[in-house]
């Protein structure tokens, strides 16, 4: 059965997030030949609609309102409810991002709908099945939605986006909404992330553990991450020791990440940390303890001092990437 599918795309600092393109690809699978509509909310969306079409959306709705400038659950729920009432989709998909997670659950309750959060794969068929990690990736479950609206959020970096087709032009329509009072008011946003690469979407993560010794110890890791266009993460031990902010923590408490490349520096590999990163495509471990548990799941390991190895890695990568 063909399904009309609504993809809720997300804008961060004026740009579409890559997970939104992945959501369009997921939307195509679920739509099963049905129309895939992408919707974006914000206050200045300019040409973003066109790009969503180039990544495979069949039609794009832009919802602009001053009250949607900053994400609030109230504002976005109101806007999307109006879109959903008008389009009556059979399926809704968004990224399992900070916004997607916050919004989807409230919206699902408003729609009295099922919601399968944080999926990493879809088994297509008349009754699609959704695969998602449980226990922070220590296991996986396969879920189906019993009836009614199909509503899922997808984990970034797991479902591949379609290739961009720059010749593709689709209708981009303005969708007018009425936004009433917002109960939560955003007063301030303080940027704490340094590189601008978000951990959950990063293709490369350089992560530090107790072995980085102090806050300054993260500097060489940041330099390596910068050269690779990646982000810096940390183990709980490093956060607890005060070497870095908890927002960098990867593990069973903290973030679960699935980058293409995860470089663990001075991380012993406690089971809680492994839960948060063991689904990474390629894992490199650098640790001076040859018996560190992290080596048991690493694809490549270097037994050595991170303060010697990491700067060398930065230098070699820099040279290799310059030649390329």
């Amino acid at each position: 059965m063909a399904r009309k599918t609504l993809v809720v795309a997300e804008v961060r600092e004026g740009e579409l997030r890559h997970v939104s393109f992945e959501a369009i690809a997921a939307g195509k699978k679920i739509a099963n030949g049905g129309e895939v509509i992408a919707v974006i909310c914000g206050d200045q969306l300019a040409n973003l609609g066109k790009t969503l079409g180039q990544y495979g959306a069949d039609r794009v709705l832009t919802v602009e309102d001053e009250k949607l400038k900053h994400y609030t659950p109230d504002g976005y729920k109101q806007a999307l409810k109006q879109v959903i009432d008008s389009e009556e989709p059979d399926a809704i998909i968004m990224g399992h991002t900070s916004i997607g997670k916050d919004l989807s659950a409230g919206l699902a309750a408003r729609l009295n709908s099922a919601l399968v959060s944080d999926i990493i794969d879809i088994e297509e068929g008349s009754d699609p099945l959704f695969i998602r990690p449980i226990y922070s990736g220590k296991a996986f479950e396969k879920k189906r939605i019993k009836e009614g609206l199909i509503f899922v959020t997808i984990r970034p970096n797991n479902i591949e986006a379609l290739d961009i087709d720059e010749s593709r032009e689709v209708p981009v329509e303005v969708f007018d909404v009425v936004i009433k009072d917002l109960r939560t008011v955003v007063k301030d946003i303080v940027k704490k992330t340094t590189s601008g690469v978000d951990l959950s979407e990063a293709k490369v993560i350089v992560s530090g553990g107790r072995g980085v010794k102090n806050a300054d110890g993260f500097k060489p890791l940041q330099e390596l991450a910068d050269v690779l266009g990646g982000a810096v993460g940390a183990s709980r031990a490093a956060c607890d020791a005060g070497y870095c902010d908890y927002s960098l923590q990867i593990g069973q408490t903290g973030k679960v990440v699935t980058p293409d490349l995860y470089i663990a520096c001075g991380i012993s590999g406690a089971i809680q940390h492994l839960a948060g990163m063991s689904s990474s495509k390629v894992i490199v471990a650098i640790n001076k303890d040859p018996d560190a548990n992290i080596f048991s799941i690493a694809d490549y390991g270097i037994v050595g001092d991170i303060f010697e190895v990491v700067p060398l890695l930065t230098q070699y990568f820099k040279e290799a990437l310059q030649q390329a």
Binding site: A114, G137, K142, K146, S296, I297, Y300
Partner: peptide
């Protein structure tokens, strides 16, 4: 009653230790 159903639960493929350089 839930609106979703868990069809299966499984463990990730066991990761083999790789190469120590």
């Amino acid at each position: 009653e839930g609106l979703t159903e868990t069809v299966d639960v499984f463990l990730p493929p066991e990761k083999q230790a790789g190469r120590i350089l």
